[in-house]
Nucleic acid binder design. Structure first.
Lengths: 221, 221
DNA sequence: TTGTCGAATGTCAGCGGCTGACATAATGTT
DNA sequence: AACATTATGTCAGCCGCTGACATTCGACAA
């Protein structure tokens, strides 16, 4: 950001930074392979590290704990979401802005900018791994609410509100996060029903949002 | 439940069961004291165990992990909520039923049935401990999600719906959980503003629910 | 009371996540 | 080429957690 050269220029960034990036990516990659193959609990940090020919100590210099390496790609997607949300035009209302931002994230993933060419299917497998691993699920949920806090701040900024006084930004961020999560769950539960990849995911989110009103209404019959 | 004698009768339950109950309660009690005094991370399981004069191994026979002993009282409250919700009259709509159930939980806590006489202030301290301890927060959120699943099942049963098809129960359960959590946060952030104890908590939840509609509406200005 | 059975507890050894401290090697800079 | 900086390796050690086995304690009947 601070450097005038573009991020894609290999000369702009020193060998040191490139190397760090490489080993980090290699660690994430090896971890995913091992987690999906043998399960999260049965995979040792030593195994991940030695797969990349790196000491265990080095692993913990890149990731604070074992969960973080599993959730790394998700964290990048969440950061991208925040960027997109900040960049949405000011005339959109909060809900429109969030829908637009989440659409941009999935489009970026489809373009293969999210770590590897087949990030779509990989994302699905990752969701299943997280949902079926209590430790990962817990860590993921904790990150999600942190994400909600920052989303709420962005929304409050856009609308010129004080988030400490007005609870609506926080509330809407939380509800939005819930809807997205439930969509991921439905999607992972039956991927074949929405094979059109990310189109299906967006459509699901829309449908869930449409049900929000009826769900809050008095009676369901 | 299965025995005809009342649960309060000390003779109905053997010495064995009573002893187990005692050590379990003692462990929870000691753990809370130490956590609140020295912090969660700086408290060792060995310390908790030796405080009750019990081996570390025994501790792990009562609680699957260190988090569980911290969240034990919360787990009881959540179980009570499910019971109350199941017992709500059938003519109430989902939202009314949940509001009624949460009210009953707080009333029970006020009556001191939730582990000790001053469960109210203790509950507040516990919330703060959880929110300020990443590990505990993660575990708590995971439990909350599980709670939402069971709440959704109860709601679907009440309304005669199939939760696998109709997403509204799950959605409403999640939104409700979010509202309750945000209420706890607001409450813990400034307890003096709602000193009327549990009255204040219920009023907070009501206010948050009232803001749900406006938060979902298009524009906030 | 005594004897027997099952359940609860203690002890021990060990794995795996994680950290601090220090030495070494690699990289960037002058 | 010499130096400063930074990444990495090595080692020791704490703590959470588990399996296996021995021991003790409460329940129940003879």
């Amino acid at each position: 950001m601070a450097t005038p050269t573009t991020a894609a220029d290999p000369q702009s960034v020193g060998l040191r930074e490139r190397k760090k990036r490489r080993t980090r990516d290699a660690l994430v990659d090896a971890a995913h392979r091992l987690f999906l193959c043998h399960g999260y609990g049965r995979t040792t940090v030593d195994e991940i590290a030695s797969e990349v020919e790196v000491s265990q100590r080095t692993f913990f210099r890149y990731f604070a704990n074992k969960e973080e390496v599993a959730l790394a790609v998700l964290a990048e997607a969440e950061a991208a979401f925040l960027e997109f949300l900040r960049a949405r035009p000011a005339e959109e209302n909060p809900l429109e802005a969030m829908r637009g931002a989440v659409r941009e994230v999935w489009q970026a993933v489809d373009r293969g900018q999210g770590g590897g060419p087949d990030s779509g299917p990989a994302a699905l497998e990752l969701f299943e791994l997280i949902e079926s691993t209590p430790t990962l699920l817990a860590a993921h949920l904790r990150h999600s609410i942190q994400q909600e806090v920052e989303v709420a701040r962005i929304l409050a900024d856009r609308e010129g509100l004080d988030p400490a006084v007005d609870l609506r930004p926080r509330l809407l961020a939380a509800v939005f996060g819930t809807v997205v999560r439930l969509s991921h769950l439905s999607y992972a539960a039956d991927p074949d029903a929405h094979r059109h990849s990310m189109d299906g995911m967006l459509a699901l989110i829309e449908r869930h949002f449409d049900q929000l009103g009826p769900a809050l209404a008095g009676s369901w019959r």
